[in-house]
Design a protein around this nucleic acid. Structure first.
Lengths: 319, 319
DNA sequence: TTGAAAGCGCTAACAA
DNA sequence: TTGTTAGCGCTTTCAA
């Protein structure tokens, strides 16, 4: 059991004071280049790394941020998390991932825990019904993902743009009577925003809307597709508010033997594999993660105030 | 900006020394119940929480463990991670999740990072080609998941048992000529073990084996199914080594219009939704996570040496 | 450009 | 049963 090296071991080996070593560690310019090189070399040779807890204790900065996702295995959140981890880790931060399971209570729990833990900041993936009351002390060190939340920074996807993009695309392909599979309006982004975009498009082109709203599950997509297609309305495409819904709708189409243009949103890998001709829209999840992390760091380091960011989207289609 | 409370604030408020407060914090029995209650009350009222870094610094125990998964969005790993998080967090540990992306280099990187970070232990999800050379110093604080690894503790799934269970089940249903979709033998568990179980079953029942090995992707499952079913062999079921493969095989069956009994392993949610009549085997992921966490804690706290654990499995079928 | 020394908040000898 | 005190490894005045 070899004892861990400390800063004073390095100082002794280099024949300098601990202060100087500390200066090198912290990129303080007030060190003679000669001395710096020597110390750097010794640090590398000895494989020394400063103790994070000692440092945290002294500076009162933990270099820790929490990331609260709704589900770790959600494909979309996962993409964003990738971006977040990348940026934050290279910024020297430790990232604590936690799951909310779509529960405001869980979120509050996690946030409280992070507060006790003295975390420097957090990124929170929003969901329907998210409540951030009594979390005012987080306002300048919290970034909300996927929807705007007054008083906090946020990074949003282009919900309306995505639907518009898809509808335009279909229109050019000759689809003139698209039906829409959406999500309950309690959900302000995937629900409201996307429906609104569908309705706006219908109005603009003078076509009559035909849609169903429901949950955000495969099951819901399947049911909505079933209902839309049994109603005697002339429909030449099923535009879904998300790839999850599209997967459910695809199942319905398949088992009922119907063939119809189907589209989703989210650029989900599995959907693309199982049903390659279902077009989708990439909402820029990874970029959103990176943007959120960047924004959080800027706020933590007091270089910037609260901001509301929006990500661009991009069509993904087999043809 | 209210200053954070320290242990001496609490001591002063309670009219005792810091040691006594510390004793209460650490469940030391040598405190008069009266004093204890009073202090506990004050701690709660004041909303005080001890500084983790000060504590870590003093005790040289960080209360941090790393968990290295291959993919955060893998359904099976995610289930195990759930169990791990539950146990470890309630044990007062901080959990750092990291992704290996099936790369030994990434694993080494993460492990090195955890070493520098002075993490108390780690749980590592194994994959084909995993190399743990030069990580001997982890041997008593690392638990390997999903396969055995000499010199380390491990928690395994019952690969052979799962296949045997499924084949027995099918046999009773009258399936007597099952073909097998497997994984390359480089993979010792999902690959070798499961194939071996299939072969053993065939030998035992006097049927001639018929199988294909390939990657572990949807694509691979689809291709293997295609190949197996174009060869002119009499086959009445496709037994897949994993649900991912089964999903791919299901796609092939569907698009080629064939109907055949199909089974997987892993109890994957999406597979069950899309193809409810595909039977599967639950390998006990969540329980495995819990077992791994429990084992790791025992080792960290020196209550136990290295051990090799195995999880039981369970059939999941629509009928 | 450098170093000595104080102290961040906590726990563990040791004393009482 | 309780308190005093000495650090844990680092950064940061302050002085040289």
């Amino acid at each position: 059991m070899k004892k861990r090296l400390t800063i004073s071991d390095i100082a002794r080996l280099a024949g300098v004071g601990t202060t100087t070593v500390s200066r090198v560690l912290n990129q303080d310019p007030k060190v003679k280049p000669e001395t710096r090189h020597k110390i750097e070399q010794i640090i590398v040779e000895a494989g020394y790394a400063p103790s994070p807890s000692a440092r945290a204790m002294r500076t009162q900065r933990q270099q820790v941020v929490g990331v609260i996702v709704s589900r770790l295995d959600s494909a979309s959140e996962h993409q964003a998390v990738r971006g977040i981890l990348q940026l934050l880790e290279q910024g020297g931060y430790e990232v604590l991932l936690m799951e909310s399971g779509f529960s405001s209570n869980k979120v509050a729990e996690h946030l409280n825990w992070l507060r006790l833990r003295q975390a420097d900041g957090a990124i929170l993936f929003a969901f329907t019904g998210l409540e951030l009351d009594g979390q005012a002390d987080w306002q300048d060190k919290l970034v909300v993902m996927a929807r705007r939340y007054p008083g906090f920074s946020s990074v949003c996807y282009d919900d309306k743009g995505a639907i518009a993009l898809m509808l335009e695309h279909l229109w050019r392909q000759g689809v003139h009577r698209p039906a829409y599979v959406g999500v309950e309006l309690r959900d302000s982004t995937t629900g409201q925003q996307r429906l609104e975009a569908y309705l706006a498009f219908c109005r603009e082109r003078g076509i009559s809307p035909h849609y169903r709203l429901g949950g955000l599950s495969h099951q819901a997509g399947m049911e909505a597709a079933h209902l839309l297609l049994t109603e005697q309305v002339d429909t030449d495409a099923l535009v879904c508010a998300s790839d999850t819904l599209a997967l459910g709708a695809a199942k319905h189409l398949q088992q009922s033997g119907k063939t119809l243009t189907l589209t989703g949103i989210g650029n989900n890998e599995l959907l693309r594999f199982l049903f390659p001709n279902v077009a989708s829209v990439d909402l820029g999840y990874q970029q959103a993660g990176i943007a959120a992390a960047r924004q959080l760091l800027a706020q933590i380091e007091q270089r910037q105030g609260i901001a509301e960011l929006a990500m661009p989207c991009r069509l993904v289609s087999a043809d």
